[in-house]
Each structure stands twice: as C-alpha cells, then as structure tokens.
Amino acid sequence: MTTFKLIINGKTLKGEITIEAVDAAEKEKIFKQYANDNGIDGEWTYDDATKTFTVTE
C-alpha cells in the first residue's frame, strides 16, 4: 500500500486528506468522488514524486 494525499483548494472547502491505496488510479477515483460529493469542481493535478493530488477551484 502507498500513502496518497489530496490537497483541496476550493472556494468553500480547503484542507488535506491522506489515505492509503494500492495505486494512484484507485486513489484518483476515490478522491474525485469525494470532491464531487462535496461540490468541488476544479482543475486536478498529480505529483508522482510526492504522491499528491491537488484540486483547485
């Protein structure tokens, strides 16, 4: 398992979430669903070196 981080830079929601997953593709799906469930629609980036997804509205 690898630890992945999501950084949220939303208009109404900001924060960080850290979760373990098998791979980045699995985690991306979970993070995007979390963002969608919380009304966050923005630009996504991924840094493989730090295993960090960022979504910015």
Rank of each mutant, 00 (worst) to 15 (best):
D48S: 06
D41E: 11
L13Y: 15
G42R: 04
L13N: 12
A49G: 05
K5M: 07
Y46V: 01
N36V: 11
I19H: 02
T3L: 09
N38M: 14
E57K: 04
D41A: 09
W44V: 03
I17A: 02
V22E: 08
T56V: 08
D48E: 08
I8D: 00
E20M: 13
G10Q: 03
T12I: 12
N9P: 02
K5N: 08
K29T: 09
V55K: 04
Y34D: 02
I8F: 14
I19W: 13
D48I: 06
E26W: 11
G15F: 15
L13E: 13
T2Y: 14
D23E: 06
T52L: 02
A21W: 15
F31W: 06
T52D: 01
T54S: 04
E43P: 03
K14H: 14
G15Q: 13
T3N: 05
T3H: 05
G39Y: 07
K5R: 08
N36I: 13
E16K: 05
A24W: 11
A35T: 06
I17R: 01
I8W: 13
L13R: 03
A21F: 12
E43L: 10
G42C: 13
I40E: 01
K51F: 11
D41V: 12
I8R: 00
A24Y: 11
E43Y: 10
F4H: 06
I8K: 00
Q33L: 06
I30N: 02
D48L: 04
T56M: 06
N36C: 14
G42Q: 05
G15E: 13
G10E: 02
D41T: 13
D23Q: 07
T3K: 08
I8A: 00
E20R: 11
W44H: 00
D47E: 02
K51A: 06
K27N: 13
W44P: 00
K51E: 03
D48T: 06
F4E: 03
G15P: 05
F53S: 06
N38C: 15
A21G: 15
F53A: 05
G15K: 15
K32D: 03
A21D: 04
V55Q: 04
F31E: 02
T56I: 08
K14T: 13
E26Q: 07
Y46L: 00
A25K: 07
E43C: 14
E26P: 06
F31T: 01
E43H: 10
A24M: 10
A25N: 08
L6S: 00
K5T: 13
N38L: 15
Y46T: 02
K11S: 14
T45Y: 07
G39H: 07
A25E: 10
Y34E: 02
E26L: 09
E57C: 15
A35Q: 02
T18S: 06
N36Y: 13
G39M: 05
F4R: 00
D48C: 07
E20K: 11
T56L: 08
T45R: 05
V55P: 01
T18H: 10
K27D: 03
N36P: 02
D47Y: 03
I17D: 00
K32T: 10
D41L: 12
D37L: 09
A24R: 08
I40A: 03
T12L: 12
I19Y: 05
N36G: 07
I40H: 03
A35S: 04
A21N: 11
T52H: 05
Y34N: 00
I8M: 07
T54K: 03
F31Y: 04
A24L: 13
G10M: 15
L6Q: 00
D41M: 10
A49V: 10
A35G: 04
T2G: 05
T2V: 13
N9G: 04
M1V: 10
E57S: 07
V55C: 09
F31V: 12
D47K: 00
T52E: 02
M1F: 13
A35Y: 04
N38S: 05
L6W: 09
K32L: 09
A21R: 04
E20S: 11
D37S: 08
E26C: 13
L13P: 03
D23G: 04
D47L: 01
I19P: 01
K5G: 01
I17P: 00
A21Q: 05
K29Y: 11
G10K: 03
A21H: 08
A35H: 02
K14I: 15
K5P: 03
K5Y: 14
D47H: 03
I17L: 09
I7C: 10
K11H: 14
A24D: 15
G39W: 08
W44I: 04
T18Q: 06
F4I: 11
N9D: 07
A35V: 06
I30A: 05
D23I: 06
A49I: 09
K32E: 07
L13V: 13
M1D: 06
N9L: 11
E26T: 08
E57L: 15
K32F: 12
I30P: 00
A49H: 09
F53T: 13
N36H: 12
G10T: 15
K32Y: 10
K27P: 15
W44D: 00
I7H: 02
L6P: 02
F53R: 00
T18D: 02
D37K: 06
T54V: 05
T45M: 07
Y46N: 00
N9C: 15
I7L: 03
K29R: 11
E43W: 12
T12V: 12
V55H: 05
A49E: 07
I19Q: 02
E43S: 07
I17E: 01
D47I: 03
I7A: 01
M1T: 14
A25C: 11
V22C: 14
G10I: 14
D47R: 00
E16N: 04
A35I: 14
K29F: 09
I30D: 05
A49S: 10
T18M: 10
D47F: 02
I30E: 05
T18V: 09
T12Q: 08
T2Q: 08
T50Y: 02
A49L: 12
E20W: 14
E28G: 07
F31A: 13
L6Y: 07
T56S: 08
T18C: 15
T2M: 11
T50Q: 04
D41R: 07
L13Q: 11
A21C: 15
A49Q: 09
D37R: 05
I30F: 09
V22F: 10
